[in-house]
Amino acid sequence: MSGLESLLDSRQVWRAQTGVDSDRGEAVASGHAELDALLPGGGWPSAAISELLSAGAGNGELALLWPVLSRMTREGRPIVLVSPPGAPYPAAWRRAGVVLEQCHWLDVQGREALWATEQCLRAGCCGAVVAWLPQVNNRLMRRLQVAAASGNTLAFVHRPLAKVTEASPAPLRLRLHRHAELEILKCRGGFAPSRRIAFGGGT
């Protein structure tokens, strides 16, 4: 026992703790009970980027995000989709409870998409910003993370599966598997169970 103590004292071994920095940021309920129970603070980290890795559209990413997006629009806060993988189908978004007047999408690519994402995050007036940025690297992610923190904006960045192995500054990283199943790869301030979680998808 004393051997363990001395190791801890010499800072060679770190003890994992829950809630080390639970006071750092607040969270926004995701609307999926099982997921909220696992995420520190009980939901999506607000004022930060949540990274979603997937093989492409159709993995249930909208079923995952619609609850929080629709709540934001009902509260009268605009949401912005930056370079989404297709044109949003208004009928489906409306059926999901999204107030369409508050929903905007930016059909831009490349550098402009990055610029627009950062502007939206910094402005601090968007309820949520959802961006599809296959080109973004670690350095740019850090920049976006700073923008989200300074604008106090809820942000989601979709990236391809190839980026799973790359380090990322996002406090929360999720991998979407087949439709409506996800795996928590990283979550700061909490434990990530290494199992797949089914969220109430279904179409």
């Binding site: 949003p88 208004p90 009928a91 978004w93 409306r94 999204v98 369409l100 007047e101 929903c103 905007h104 999408w105 930016l106 059909d107 831009v108 402009e112 610029w115 627009a116």
Partner: peptide, 12 residues
């Protein structure tokens, strides 16, 4: 910066 057509509303 992006032009008027880039920022689109959702209209059903």
């Amino acid at each position: 910066r992006l032009g008027e057509s880039a920022l689109r509303p959702l209209v059903e």
